[in-house]
Amino acid sequence: MPRLSVVGIRLALLYFLLGISFGALLLIHKAMPLHPAMWILLPLHMEFLLYGWVVQLVFSVAYWIFPRFLSEPKRGNPALAWAALGLLNLSILALSAASLGVLPAVQLPARLAQVAAAALLAASLWRRAKPTETGVAYKR
């Protein structure tokens, strides 16, 4: 498993832990109110689980298992993939800060950064969605 996938999957697992912890607190809060401000966790619960967990995990696993090129770099441009992963995580953290009321002005730039991260994810995986190579160098 390449280092990028190790980092991405482990980050996804951490977001999963945080996301389900917030979700468990919110569900308990429905049954027995814990704190009036508890619902502030809802956007974090959704952001962490949809983007931090599902999107990040799918990208990291795809980067690991999609067919590789015969010549280096076999998984495509690593800088592109690292930029995608970095921007995705930066946008999740910025959106979390905005939803908590810290840095509310970053909400729009963070959403734009998330779109850019998605474009980078797509660019990183696009040409690897292809038949497995069997000896003939794939023309990029």
């Binding site: 979700g23 468990a24 308990i28 429905k30 049954a31």
Partner: peptide
């Protein structure tokens, strides 16, 4: 039903924690 919901939250949370616990060391180069 309140306690059932609390139990449901704790069970699902524990399921996730066990999955992460079991997966973490397998994510390696």
């Amino acid at each position: 039903w309140g306690w059932a919901l609390v139990a449901s939250a704790l069970m699902q949370w524990l399921a996730g924690v066990l999955f992460v616990y079991n997966s973490w060391a397998r994510i390696k180069e």
